[in-house]
Design a protein around this nucleic acid. Sequence first.
DNA 1: AGCTAAGCGAGACGGTACGTCCAGTCTTTCG
DNA 2: CGAAAGACTGGACGTACCGTCTCGCTTAGCT
Lengths: 174, 174, 174, 174
Amino acid sequence: MARPRNTESDAAILAAAATSLRSGGYDALLVDDLAKRIGVAKTTVYRRWPTKNHLVASAIASWQGEVEPPDTGSLERDLVAIVTDLAELLDPAPIRRMVAELVAASQREPELRRQVDALWQSRRDAMRQLLNDDESPVLDQLFGAVFYRALVAHEKLDADYAAALVRSTLAGGR
Amino acid sequence: MARPRNTESDAAILAAAATSLRSGGYDALLVDDLAKRIGVAKTTVYRRWPTKNHLVASAIASWQGEVEPPDTGSLERDLVAIVTDLAELLDPAPIRRMVAELVAASQREPELRRQVDALWQSRRDAMRQLLNDDESPVLDQLFGAVFYRALVAHEKLDADYAAALVRSTLAGGR
Amino acid sequence: MARPRNTESDAAILAAAATSLRSGGYDALLVDDLAKRIGVAKTTVYRRWPTKNHLVASAIASWQGEVEPPDTGSLERDLVAIVTDLAELLDPAPIRRMVAELVAASQREPELRRQVDALWQSRRDAMRQLLNDDESPVLDQLFGAVFYRALVAHEKLDADYAAALVRSTLAGGR
Amino acid sequence: MARPRNTESDAAILAAAATSLRSGGYDALLVDDLAKRIGVAKTTVYRRWPTKNHLVASAIASWQGEVEPPDTGSLERDLVAIVTDLAELLDPAPIRRMVAELVAASQREPELRRQVDALWQSRRDAMRQLLNDDESPVLDQLFGAVFYRALVAHEKLDADYAAALVRSTLAGGR
DNA sequence: AGCTAAGCGAGACGGTACGTCCAGTCTTTCG
DNA sequence: CGAAAGACTGGACGTACCGTCTCGCTTAGCT
């Protein structure tokens, strides 16, 4: 019944936030600047996201399309598809940096956690469906390895690695 | 001729920093508070560490216990020992929070990265030695799964999980 | 031809405004709160009064009846009647506070000035009529003394003072 | 033992505050601008005065000139001197505006009141001494008339008026 | 009876200050 | 020179409140 929120503002803010994040990471996103840049009042930002952190979470979530569960007929090929997609997503340094910030922020703020978790949800769903086992640690092994190389080991992530990882996981270590 | 530095201050600062980090992570460590709490001038802190980040790095480095490579005669038992150790280390929420902060900070600041990496080095070395293969993704699968559950999936980490993870990794998924 | 304004809203708004003003003065009157409290839209307030200041002026004016020029047959008694009335009006601290705000606001905003001036007009008219002299500073002396004690000197204002003031003014100082 | 406060900053801040107040009254004094203008961090201002209001109070207190009690041998001439001085002080519109703001603010904040009262103190003292009567309403009549014309009646204040006012006050109305 | 202009509740919006928080640097005095 | 104390710069954050705007709905009164 009241004046509806301007959905263009939502989009503009998210877009601007994403741009800032990509360019210089978390610290490059200044709420004041962002608002000024897109011609919106700071209050309009804070009405939508109570905190810079919340905005960051949304910005990332927004730039992430849904992931379709692959269906190549082969479990291995399907797994490779999913893992490769994630690996290539997490390879660029700016992305690693931001994902790391998000992971940290999601430990601090429960609200944010939900949004960040949602980021990976479709990938998890696709994987669970393929594995057909709700308990198997295989999901952790595959996704974990990718995150681990991105955030902890600082190693390269590409299609070759993804393939090797899936192969190793399916075959077992000795 | 000049007054020597008070080495007790070094220790006190590191200890206080570690305490803060454990309790609330990176953001809970405020240089001002820390100095006041232990009765030291802020300058005394900054004379030793040029930056909060450097201090954090030192604090972490100081508390990293060396991990002895186990030798039970069985590869699986050895792996379970290492993985269980890490899993139990990363189970408590405050630790997760802080590790997440460190991971994020280490993406921001290259200097910090080296120190944070050093934190896990002895575990990596032990694992590499057991695996006897510098390229195998198995290390990523094991450590990655543990970090993943701690930081991304927010799931429990205990000895049972560690054992199941090792078993799954060695046996292979199907 | 169009829907008429709801006159009950006028009254409710004025009443609520007066209450706020009495309780905590100018700063205690928040248009948002006021509207919410009485279940009226902010626009309904602003349709009637273009500004918080205008509303404040009306609120005060509304609670102030017209002042009848007294006619006791004696100039002194008439003057005492008028001055006592004003003095007793301006004695309570909340009123002083608000009058002070109005005086200040009327310096800022010419529009408001007219309304605030109107507040005192009937008293000025009555006085002028009694004095029968458009130039005499006596009006300033009488009204001025009362305002001065209320706003600048922070001294008591009661019937006794009013009588003494009139006496002194008529008699002259020495 | 610690670094002492920079007393020049105190003075510079007060001077800048006074300038702002004179130019446009209370609302023209913006803490941010002020700090920027004199090359000081906002925190340096807030370290000294917890609030804009406190700063305003100090600024006013700092600029109050002492008034010497005149001694011409004639009561009337002495009174005219004092009243003329005040009248000419309060004639310019910007001053009226600011005085009105101060009067209002001093009703709001007790701390401020003391400082604002001090502004007029030496004039009151001089007047009391001349009148030689602690109770006489004559002081209220004279000062009150001037303030009244400045703040309520919006009428001219000059030496002629001051003389007429003193004459009227001494002679009595009728 | 329907059309229309305005009132209304709800709340978004632009704008502008305010006061707070912290990192890192600088300055003073003492030992 | 080292250390304690704390002032200082600098810059972002989130809050508060004003006055305007835009919805969708309601209510006269004119045709």
